[in-house]
Design a protein around this nucleic acid. Sequence first.
DNA 1: ATGTGACTTGTAGTCCGTA
DNA 2: ATACGGACTACAAGTCACA
Lengths: 77, 77
Amino acid sequence: MKILAKALGANIRAKRKELGISQDGLALECGVDRSYMGRIERGEVNITVEKLYVISRTLGCEAASLLPALAEIKSED
Amino acid sequence: MKILAKALGANIRAKRKELGISQDGLALECGVDRSYMGRIERGEVNITVEKLYVISRTLGCEAASLLPALAEIKSED
DNA sequence: ATGTGACTTGTAGTCCGTA
DNA sequence: ATACGGACTACAAGTCACA
């Protein structure tokens, strides 16, 4: 899919592994579906800012820290 | 509406005014409807990360810099 | 130039599976 | 535990008219 979603998903996955929790453990704590969290990490969906905050809160980091830099994304998305 | 959307909208509006451009000027450059940009700034809608990047690119700043800190948003959204 | 209402369409997000 | 799919429902995205 889109570069942006993939980069964001990769950041979320990296942070999650850093904490040593499972994908569906994270999904459960975020109150989102297990299968949906998988799609997010794989960059198959373009999440809303609200969901980004729910996830970052659970991951214990700033929402801003999960976002890839603009330079990484270039002109498309 | 939600605190998060309002805080984000306020940040976008502040950055836009800093650049001295109008709401529909920004909307035009972002390729979104004038009325929709108004709703974003007023925090009436919960935008996707993709839209956030389109707007931040037009504003010439990092997407992360438009996001309010987690501490400002507390447990709700 | 901006706010608001009443829409339609696309997709985010949910819930159920199988491997 | 994770990837992936199908079939939904909720809401973001986009358009237009009027104040």
